[in-house]
Design a protein around this nucleic acid. Structure first.
Lengths: 248, 248
DNA sequence: CGCCTTGTTGAATACTGTCAATACACGTGG
DNA sequence: CCACGTGTATTGACAGTATTCAACAAGGCG
């Protein structure tokens, strides 16, 4: 299987042989983590090569908000976060995962040497930003029902783009509590909304397997605008091209 | 008065004379806009040199969510957004503003020639990302009351950092409807929460002038963690230093 | 088998939104 | 100077959404 980070970066910039080697090199020291384990030492950027992880913040009274959900190929923290200040937040795995914890200094050196890698990493940062903005829209203005539908569409489409969906199904290793902390809802309410979605025939969810009956219908229920994903809208099996001219 | 973009970038990277000139050059063609006016043609990045603006998204039935609030020195859209896909969203001014609408191609050329400017711009992107994450936390897990308090703290501290606060007061050119679309609340509820904040003696708000009685008290009510702002926590008159070592 | 986590359910409560009416401020035109 | 219109702020009553609390079911694991 192709290196997940490489695949991700090539979504933004076609890389040369040497650049690809450099990227592979970065991932060389990747280590396996168990599920529900904190990752990302100070001074490193955790890159998720396989598995699921999330980024969250705790309020002083224990309330938790998840503000990032990561799949294969995702950077779990941003480059230059040390310059920008990024609040206190943690990164944890959801499932057993393969993660490369790259030293920030190493990464900076690689970017220095390979400007095109730097460019792709920057574009990646911006793509994550778009996801986050859409998340804000969901939390602020979508109903719980739409929010859930939207989340499921997003996860499914992202996983499909990295070849981790089979047909209409994908893995979704989140408890109802996790879903609540993701979407700003209580566990109980998540449960009820989930039942409604099932009753309406939009999804099936057993264990950690999510099945979407009809992506079109679900995305309409979610009021989803697929352009924010930066993926070719509804490819049937992943892999997006490289060049893409677009509205500003 | 110093160029607002320059000030912003030097928060992340000290620039040489030539670099500063290049930045000034970028802003040379800035034009004045009236309040409540759309900015940012396709293919350009709007840079706000003076005034207030916001970035928002409309759902299909007209619900609006604001997911970015800009003050002097802010980029209203991200570089490489054209590669990443960034959803459909608009940028509008809130007040009469001075904005430089820089061609993406121009900006790319400048970054090519001045890597340190590129670096600062990237760090700026990451700083905005941190703001957005905190916004997600607010929308997802803070009560309406905390959310408002948090927003007021953030705006005040950001404005103070660019020298636009006087003592405990700053400008806040937002209607209650805007505040609602910012914080995911209805106008009516915004009104009630505002009254509560006033009754509790935390803020005063007349016209577009916000006065904070005690930043410490308000930020405690907001459960605010100042590290996400990337500003020296509570400087009394703005300007932050340049070097900053920090937790990852 | 018993413990622990996760999922499910009901009832009561709290929070937030909607609707509709009224008040206020400002700028325009008479 | 005043009448009027528009946009904003405020209020009350009511409906709807979501949370809390508490209990119980189901499955995995030692």
């Amino acid at each position: 299987m192709m290196n997940a980070l490489l695949r991700k970066l090539e979504r933004f910039e076609t890389l040369t042989r040497g650049e690809r080697d450099a990227v592979e090199q970065l991932c060389a020291g990747a280590v396996h983590h168990r599920g529900d384990e904190q990752v990302g030492q100070a001074g490193t950027i955790p890159i998720l090569l396989h598995g699921f992880a999330y980024r969250f913040k705790l309020l002083s009274d224990g309330r938790r908000q998840i503000h990032g959900l990561f799949v294969s190929g995702d950077l779990c923290r941003h480059i230059y976060g040390h310059l920008a200040g990024q609040g206190e937040c943690g990164v944890r795995t959801l499932t057993p995962s393969l993660v490369a914890s790259v030293q920030v200094t190493t990464l900076l050196a690689v970017m220095e040497e390979h400007p095109r890698i730097a460019k792709a990493l920057w574009a990646n940062t911006v793509a994550d930003d778009a996801l986050l903005r859409e998340w804000v829209v969901s939390l602020g203005r979508r109903t719980a029902y739409e929010r859930m539908a939207h989340l499921f569409c997003e996860v499914f489409l992202r996983l499909r783009a990295v070849g981790q969906a089979e047909g209409e199904s994908c893995d979704l290793p989140l408890t109802q509590m996790d879903l609540g902390d993701l979407m700003g809802l209580s566990t109980v309410h998540v449960n009820r909304v989930l039942q409604q979605l099932r009753r309406d025939g939009l999804i099936a969810l057993k264990g950690s397997q999510l099945t979407i009956r009809d992506v079109g219908v679900l995305s309409r229920a979610a009021d989803l605008d697929p352009s924010y994903l930066g993926l070719d809208t509804l490819p049937s099996s992943g892999r997006t091209g490289t060049a893409r001219a677009q509205i500003a």
